[in-house]
Design a protein around this nucleic acid. Structure first.
Length: 291
DNA sequence: ACCGCACCCTGAGCGC
DNA sequence: TGCGCTCAGGGTGCGG
């Protein structure tokens, strides 16, 4: 599931395939809630644009055209953004993979889950946005326009600060983990990095936010930044479907301390990692390191 | 203002 | 072998 590190890795690797290129044609799937801008309108508005930069805000990507209009993308749960011809087995489900010959698995051309394809005026590869679960989002923002989804975002999680977490947690009965997952408080943290950050900070995910002391908020903010920076440096976490635009897997999943490790020993103290549910999310923690 | 929960979707993995 | 069920998760929006 793409969170801040996976989105940032995607941004960096997609940049050379986007910046400076002019859109010749856009192909889309049918209208669905995936398209917050109607696909016909999106195709029309993108044609002829030249992209000047691609930025990230929380888990959103914003590709900026020369006139200040922007293509906004959210990868949702299973979104994949990559140039045509990317070779990765993760672009296919296990069953789809099994039905293909090995040579057909090497280069992905598009399928029914590919909702957006951008063709450019040059000879370079198309850009594809594939999303099996369709929780991703695409919309177009005219120059100077804003969108409620972007307006609501808190400061980027890479800039997470203790005083901000402390202020935001005052009077909140909810678990501190839910605070971290609230994109309007800090933008970019998802389920994996919330659990990982809380373990590094030694704080139990169920701790009521209002009980957090100032010093603990400082420690948690630092842990969030450390975990996210390390995850970016290792190419993000690859589970079933995250694939960077160059087809390479991330490696951070090999460094998970608690996520998906229920029943296994804590690397720090040897206690068995527990799995509980917090705010309808699977939550993993060490009962002895985190209190 | 805050909080719990339903909802959107598909594939994997299970039991029968 | 195959069907039907459950689960996973981000973000929004609803009702309490």
């Amino acid at each position: 599931m793409p969170e801040l590190p996976e989105v940032e890795v995607t941004r960096r690797r997609i940049e050379p395939f986007l910046v400076g290129r002019t859109v010749a044609k856009v192909r889309t799937g049918p209208p669905s809630y995936f398209f917050l801008t109607d696909p016909a309108s999106l195709r029309r508005r993108m044609r002829g644009r030249t992209f000047g930069s691609i930025q990230r805000r929380g888990k959103y990507l914003l590709a900026r055209a020369e006139d200040g209009s922007r293509l906004v993308l959210h990868l949702g749960m299973s979104g994949q953004l990559f140039p045509e011809g990317t070779s990765s087995l993760r672009l296919l489900s296990a069953t789809a993979r099994a039905s293909l010959k090995p040579e057909e698995q090497l280069s992905f051309a598009g399928d029914r889950h590919t909702h957006l394809r951008v063709e450019f005026a040059d000879e370079g590869p198309d850009l594809l946005f594939r999303d099996v679960r369709k929780f991703g989002k695409v919309f177009w923002l005219a120059a100077g326009a804003d969108h409620s989804r972007l307006r609501k975002l808190g400061p980027d999680a890479l800039m997470c600060e203790g005083n901000h977490l402390f202020a935001a947690s005052r009077g909140r009965q909810a678990a501190v983990k839910q605070l971290l997952l609230d994109q309007s408080i800090v933008a970019g943290i998802g389920n994996i990095y919330a659990d990982e950050s809380l373990h590094l900070a030694g704080i139990r995910p169920t701790r009521r936010a209002r009980r957090m002391r100032r010093r603990e908020c400082d420690g948690l903010a630092q842990a969030v930044r450390e975990v996210l920076e390390r995850a970016i440096a290792t190419g993000g976490s690859s589970m079933s479907d995250f694939v960077a635009p160059d087809g390479e897997d991330g490696r951070y999943q090999t460094e998970w301390r608690v996520y998906a490790r229920a029943g296994q020993p804590c690397y720090h103290c040897g206690s068995r990692i527990r799995r509980i549910v917090v705010g309808q999310r699977g939550t993993h923690y060490c009962p002895s390191c985190q209190d």
